[in-house]
């Protein structure tokens, strides 16, 4: 069974909206203010440990706009553009990004089925609403928060402010990057 790995760029105040700048948020692109040579390496290893992307509609649309025109020497963009993508949405009509598949209904069952397949990690980036659904159904195997040293003050937050259940987690790893970003990695506590 493959793992679902949720990996988020998050501000100190828990905001995950538009770290890459494709969604027209007023602080859009905020993650680019923090640069060091270790984060890209970490993100590259992470994406190459996976072979499926699972995304919510908002993140998917931002990615579908940004990634197809990107190119790099290390193969990050090629990997993103070529790997299969599953997008969860009830409203999306057209999937413009290469190798995309729509999950319209029975999200939990569909995701469970994806997990049953053989393969590497299933990566979830951003996709706040979807992440809350996955968390509530205990479908997240690893939650990685890259906490950026900034308080944005506004914007959509990762965690639902009114979730019904408390979730106890187990710290799996923590790592400090030279830019002051902290990686906090958690497994669900069994």
């Amino acid at each position: 069974m493959r793992k679902i790995v949720v990996s988020e760029f998050v501000s100190l105040d828990g905001v995950v909206e538009d770290p890459g700048g494709a969604e027209k948020f007023k602080h859009g692109g905020w993650s680019f203010k923090f640069r060091d040579d270790q984060v890209p390496k970490y993100k590259l290893d992470e994406v190459f440990a996976s072979d499926v992307l699972l995304l919510g509609r908002v993140t998917y649309e931002g990615f579908a706009k940004a990634w197809p025109s990107m190119k790099d020497d290390v193969g990050f963009a090629d990997k993103m553009n070529n790997m299969p993508k599953y997008v969860v949405s009830t409203t999306l009509k057209k999937l413009d990004w290469n190798n995309s598949h729509l999950i319209k209904t029975n999200v939990v069952e569909e995701v469970k089925e994806l997990k049953q397949q053989q393969g590497k990690d299933i990566m979830v980036y951003g996709s706040g609403k979807l992440v809350n659904t996955l968390l509530q159904h205990d479908l997240v195997d690893e939650l990685r928060l890259m906490v950026h040293p900034v308080v944005l003050g506004s914007g959509r937050r990762l965690f639902d402010d009114n979730a019904e259940t408390m979730k106890v987690m187990k710290l799996a790893d923590s790592k400090t990057f030279p830019s002051g970003i902290i990686l906090l990695s958690y497994h669900p506590a069994k």
């Binding site: 100190l12 105040d13 828990g14 602080h27 905020w30 203010k33 968390l135 040293p149 900034v150 308080v151 944005l152 003050g153 506004s154 965690f159 639902d160 402010d161 009114n162 979730a163 019904e164 259940t165 408390m166 979730k167 106890v168 987690m169 187990k170 710290l171 923590s174 400090t176 002051g180 970003i181 902290i182 906090l184 958690y186 506590a189």
Partner: peptide, 30 residues
């Protein structure tokens, strides 16, 4: 001190910030 738990609801730490504020990480300990 970041605790390994998702509470779901409660009293939030940061609210009503009127501007973006960058901090400098001095130290972390697990």
């Amino acid at each position: 001190n970041i605790n390994p738990i998702v509470l779901g609801k409660g009293k939030p730490l940061f609210r009503d910030q009127n501007e973006m504020r960058r901090l400098k990480l001095l130290e972390s300990k697990t």
